[in-house]
């Protein structure tokens, strides 16, 4: 399992995001959903990279990170749709965000770890967390209704 990995340049981490109900993130029809993991289904590979310039961001909420999908190359971001913070996907190279000299707040999430689970809180809309519902096939959204209807605890695992 041990192998050397020398990066010739900065690269995002590649991994999967599952939730405690054994659902994985699945991308189809421009939509990111959480579905129960099955044999016949390939979960989406998530890209993740830390923000280089977190000085202006809150310190105790977790590591500010950019989140994206490997294939197709999309990034998760939050914006208001009809006065409601909404999780969206945008065609965006995650490394371009990484190389920005200022934090690109709509694309940033505070990654907070507790035990083996993680939460992802929007930097642009504090108090809004990435969430899924426990029934299969729900879209991945942002909510401020934490710990009730929605699942906001995820298991982030790195692929090599």
């Amino acid at each position: 399992r041990q192998k050397l990995k020398i990066l010739s340049k900065a690269e995002p981490l590649l991994g999967n995001i599952q939730d405690i109900s054994h659902q994985v993130w699945f991308f189809q029809d421009q939509t990111l959903t959480a579905v129960p993991r099955k044999n016949c289904m390939v979960p989406v590979t998530v890209t993740l990279i830390s923000c280089k310039c977190p000085e202006t961001l809150e310190k105790d909420k977790g590591n500010p990170i950019y989140l994206g999908l490997k294939e197709p190359e999309l990034c998760l971001f939050c914006e208001k749709v009809k006065d409601q913070p909404t999780l969206q996907l945008k065609e965006q190279n995650i490394m371009d965000l990484y190389y920005e000299n200022e934090p690109v707040k709509p694309f940033l999430f505070y990654h907070s770890q507790s035990g083996r689970t993680s939460t992802f809180e929007s930097v642009a809309f504090p108090g809004w967390f990435i969430a899924v519902c426990s029934q299969g096939g729900c879209p991945v959204i942002v909510t401020q209704d934490v710990g009730k209807t929605y699942i906001t605890d995820f298991v982030w695992s790195v692929l090599y």
Partner: peptide, 8 residues
């Protein structure tokens, strides 16, 4: 640039 050696 960063290099990374993964261990267990």
């Amino acid at each position: 640039y960063e290099s990374c050696v993964p261990f267990e």
